[in-house]
C-alpha cells in the first residue's frame, strides 16, 4: 500500500498489487485528458478504491450506454504506482468502437468502470534490477512507459535502461517530449527512436522497422543479461522476440505483450 509522505522511495508496492482478491469493477472518473499525438490521448482517472499496481499491468474498462449496451476492453496502465491518478493512454483505432468513443467523445468528468490491476507477469519494478531493455512499436510503448516513469521516480538503484521505440513518424511518437527530457536528465537512460514511414528533414536516426541489426546495435549485449520487455502489434513482437533469441538473449529473460493485429 502506498504510504504518502516523506519516504516515497520506501513505498511498498511489490505485494499490494499481486494479491489474492476478486477483481471488482469500480467507478472511474476522468479528471484530466492530455493529447499525446493526433491519434492518441491519455486519460487521468480517479478511482475510489484503487489499491496500487505494478508497472506493466493493465486494466479492463467497461462502458455502458443509456440503453444498457456494454463494451469492454483492456488498456495498459501508463502511470507509475507512485502517481495518485491512474493514467491510461489510448490510441484511436479504425473501427474501434471503444477507442473512438474515448478519443472523440470523452470529456473531463465522464465516468466508466474500471477493474484491475491485472496481469502480474508482464511487470518490472526497480527491485528486479537491470539492465532494462525495452522494445515498443506504436501504442506498445504504454506499459513500458509505466516502467520508465517508475524507474525515474526511484532515485536510488537506477539500473541502466534503454527504450527502442518504433513509430511511423515523429508526430506519432507518444510521450516524445517527456522521453527526451527523461533521457536528457539521466545518463543511464537511452531512448532510441526509429521512424518507419516519414522522417523530418535532417533526421539522422533510424528510419526502418526494427530488425536484427538494429537490435544488435541498440540493445546491451546478451552477456549483460538484461530484463527485456517487448510490446506492440503481434507481428512486431514475434519478429523482435525471434531476433533477440537469434542474437543470443536468454528467452526466459524476454517478456512479451502482444497487442493483437490492431496494436491495442
Amino acid at each position: 500500500m502506498a504510504t504518502p509522505g516523506k519516504n516515497r522511495d520506501m513505498t511498498v508496492i511489490e505485494t499490494s498489487a499481486v494479491s489474492v482478491r476478486r477483481l471488482e469493477w469500480q467507478r472511474a472518473e476522468v479528471r484530466k485528458i492530455m493529447v499525446e499525438t493526433p491519434r492518441v490521448k491519455s486519460f487521468l482517472l480517479h478511482l475510489p478504491s484503487w489499491l496500487g499496481h505494478l508497472p506493466g499491468q493493465h486494466v479492463d474498462i467497461r462502458l455502458t450506454a443509456e440503453d444498457g449496451y456494454q463494451a469492454q476492453r483492456s488498456y495498459s496502465i501508463a502511470s507509475p504506482p507512485e502517481d495518485k491518478l491512474l493514467t491510461l493512454t489510448v490510441e484511436r483505432v479504425e473501427n474501434g468502437e471503444v477507442s473512438q468513443y474515448l478519443i472523440d467523445d470523452v470529456r473531463v468528468g465522464d465516468q466508466f468502470e474500471v477493474r484491475g490491476p491485472i496481469g502480474g507477469y508482464f511487470v518490472w519494478t526497480t527491485s528486479m534490477g537491470g539492465p532494462l531493455c525495452l522494445a515498443a512499436a506504436g501504442s506498445g510503448v504504454v506499459p513500458l512507459m509505466a516502467m520508465l516513469r517508475h524507474r525515474c521516480r526511484r532515485r536510488k538503484n537506477r539500473a541502466p535502461a534503454l527504450l527502442l521505440y518504433s513509430s511511423r513518424s515523429l508526430e506519432d511518437v507518444i510521450y516524445r517530449d517527456e522521453l527526451d527530457s527523461m533521457a536528457h536528465r539521466d545518463s543511464d537512460l537511452h531512448v532510441v527512436n526509429t521512424l518507419t514511414r516519414q522522417q523530418p528533414e535532417g533526421w539522422i536516426g533510424y528510419r526502418r522497422r526494427i530488425d536484427k541489426e538494429l537490435l544488435a546495435e541498440a540493445f546491451v549485449p546478451p552477456e549483460w543479461n538484461p530484463n527485456i520487455f517487448v510490446c506492440g502489434p503481434t507481428p512486431f513482437v514475434e519478429n523482435v522476440s525471434r531476433f533477440l533469441v537469434e542474437l543470443g538473449y536468454d528467452s526466459l529473460t524476454i517478456k512479451t505483450e502482444r497487442f493483437g493485429p490492431s496494436g491495442g
Binding site: L23, G119, Y121, P235, E257, P261
Partner: peptide, 30 residues
Amino acid sequence: MTENGVDLVLDGNAAAGLLQEIFVRDITTA
C-alpha cells in the same frame, strides 16, 4: 484483415482478467 493468422496469437498475460475471475488470484506468474 489478417491473411495468414499470425497476428491472432496473444500472450497468456492477456487472459489474466478472465482467469482471475475463476482463480480469484492472478495466475499469470504461476
